[in-house]
Write a protein that binds this DNA or RNA. Structure first.
Lengths: 154, 154
DNA sequence: AACGGACAAAAATAACTGTTTTTGTCCGTT
DNA sequence: AACGGACAAAAACAGTTATTTTTGTCCGTT
C-alpha cells in the first residue's frame, strides 16, 4: 500500500485509455496496478505506465488486445528472464505482427520465428557470384547437393 | 538473344528452385528470364538470379507465392521508381508480413502502413515523466485534451 | 473519484466451406 | 537439356458463419 502511485484518472489522461479498458485489463491480468490504496483503489506504478503506454501504441498500430496477450505469454516463454515484455522489450508492430528486436536479431513475438534479412545476405552473395563465377561452372550457392550429380531432372 | 545468361539447370542449382517453379513463375510473370536462346530456351540474367534468390528466401521464411506477387504489385505502386522490388529493395519477412526498409523507415509491403517503434518513443517520454512530473499534476502525455475538463467520467 | 455489476454493441477470432494457386509427376517433342 | 501439356495432390486463399473477447454505457455503492 502506498499513495505515491498514479490514480485511475491520471492514468486515463496520461495514456488516453478509458476507465473501462483499465478496469478490464486489470481484471483479466493484462496490466495489473502494482499497488492499492487502503480503500482498494488502484495505484499504478511508473512501470505500469510504461506497459500501458506500450499497449496503447500497439493498439494504435492495429494490434488487437488478444494478440498482445498471446504475444506476452509467448515472449515470457521465449525469454524467461523477461518478466514484463511490454516494458522491457523493443517492439515494432503493425496490425498483424509484433516484432521483437533483441540482440541484433529480430523475431516475431507470437511464433518466435526469426526474421530473415534476404537482401543483406544477397549483397554478400552477389559479390561472390560476380567475382568468381562464370555462368558455366558454379556451385557456390548450392544448398545441399548430395554428390554432384550432373543435371538432375526434377 | 545471347548465350551468356544462366541456363535453367544452372539456376536450379544456384537457387535451389525446381524446374517446375521456374517454369510456372516464368509463365505467370513472377520472374521472367531476360533473354532466350535461338531455340527459345530461357537464359536468366544476373538480376534475374537475385530476384529468384530473394523469392526463394521469402518462401523459406514462410511467405506464400501469392503474397509475394501481391507485395510486388503493391510496392511498384508505392515506389514507382522501383521496377524490380525483389532485386532492388531491402526486405525482411516472416510468414505473415514482408517489411520494406526504406530511408530509415519501415513499412509493410502489402498495405504500405508504416511501422511504429513504440519503445523508441517511450524512452524519450519516460525521461520527461520521470523528470518533470509528480504524480499529482501531469498532462504532458495528454493526447488531445479539449479544454482541460477535470475528471471526465468515461 | 473510484469501484463493480449487468446488458448490449463492436471487434476479433476460430472453424468451416468451396475456390484458386502452386507444385509434383509423367509423357512426348525439339 | 530444355520445353510444354495434362492430370492430381498440396497449399493458400476468400467467404461465410458461430463464438469469444473487448468496449461502451448505465446504474448503484463506497
Amino acid at each position: 500500500m502506498n499513495d505515491t502511485g498514479y490514480s485511475c484518472q491520471q492514468v486515463m489522461r496520461i495514456t488516453g485509455l478509458t476507465r473501462r479498458q483499465l478496469s478490464y485489463w486489470r481484471k483479466t491480468g493484462l496490466v495489473v496496478p502494482q499497488d492499492n490504496t487502503r480503500g482498494g483503489h488502484a495505484r499504478y506504478s511508473f512501470a505500469d505506465l510504461l506497459a500501458l503506454k506500450t499497449a496503447r501504441k500497439l493498439i494504435d498500430a492495429g494490434v488487437s488486445v488478444q494478440r498482445i496477450r498471446r504475444s506476452i505469454t509467448s515472449l515470457t516463454g521465449f525469454l524467461p528472464s523477461c518478466n514484463a515484455p511490454l516494458t522491457e522489450l523493443s517492439l515494432v508492430a503493425t496490425g498483424d505482427v509484433i516484432l521483437v528486436l533483441h540482440r541484433e536479431a529480430a523475431f516475431e513475438a507470437l511464433s518466435g520465428q526469426e526474421w530473415i534479412y534476404p537482401v543483406a545476405e544477397l549483397e554478400r552473395e552477389a559479390a561472390s557470384i560476380r567475382g568468381e563465377m562464370a555462368p558455366e561452372q558454379n556451385d557456390l550457392f548450392e544448398q545441399s547437393l548430395p554428390a554432384r550429380q550432373e543435371a538432375v531432372q526434377q
